[in-house]
Amino acid sequence: MSAVSPRKLSEPVAAAAPSHAARRARRSVDPVVLTLLPIIVIAVIVGAVVNPVFLTTTNIIDNIITTSAVLGVLVIAESLILIGGYFDLSLEATVGFAPMLLAVLVSSAADAGLGLPFWAGLLITIPAVLLIGLANGLMIAKMKLNAFIVTLAMLILLQGLTIGLSGGQTFAMLPKAMTYLGDGVILGLPVQAWIFVLAFAAAYVFMKFTPTGRSIYAMGGNLEAARAAGIRTTRLTIGVVVAGSLLAALAGLMLTGRIASVTANQGSGMIFTVFAAAVIGGISLNGGRGNLIGAGLGVILLGIIQNILTLSNVPSFWINAAYGAIILAALLIGWVSTQRFPGGRAAA
């Protein structure tokens, strides 16, 4: 590089920014995080007022964090794909399919399973999940088919396979290894809480500080420019979609562990909440913008709201309506905040 030093025209760096440092400081905090934190604080206050149980450690750790963990892992998966400029509807079907396949393989013959050892079950389930991601990825990246229709078809296919595999029954006699992700405890905290926190931290660091992570942002932000900069976009897309499938399978196992059984409709309908959390968290549906901290806060906000709704005894028939209304409200507040700080779009 040293040789490449054109002499600058002898001209002072003109009228540089006046409040340089101030601007930098304000910028370094993501506007989405700035908006979400106060909303979360308000939600916590509301929760505490509504029900004194809300602020207890048990409620926060066992209910809010733990029940958010499955959603959280799925949101990470979807966020990676969204930031890369695509999306994947079939994740929710993988949430049901992977544990069902595993359950069928490892349940004893008496429970309508094949009675394979747990490791053998994993040895079949993991490649199956990889295959799902690979199929999606190849169709999206290589054949340039539309991600919506490809993953919608995959969603329907996998849901069908799950029902077919189950033979219409629920698998509840699962080996201990399979439910560990649901009831395990490490250092006094549930495994699910650990996964939630560590997965978000790891995903954040990966996306923010590794060349691969930044390449995903570049690809989602401008595919052509990323290609021209030497990023192998086809490979990267396939990689991201496969990673998404693996994470969805992990989320599925966590869910199975928590409820200690696999039903044929596990995961169905979750994808909408996943999208809602990602968007509330500032992940752009157009790719290339948003970060995993914001997405994590989005998940926590939804978890808190769900928890408050449950604690305040909202009749279960109304919970979904309340939930939907609150998601809309969160989106509107996010919109107001981007109007307030001009240029305050989620940074990459």
Binding site: R214, Y217, A218, G221, N222, A225, G288, A348
Partner: peptide, 13 residues
């Protein structure tokens, strides 16, 4: 303009 840079990423990136 269209395939040179990624709009959302910083100048340094």
């Amino acid at each position: 303009h269209t395939s040179g840079y990624v709009p959302a990423l910083s100048v340094a990136e």
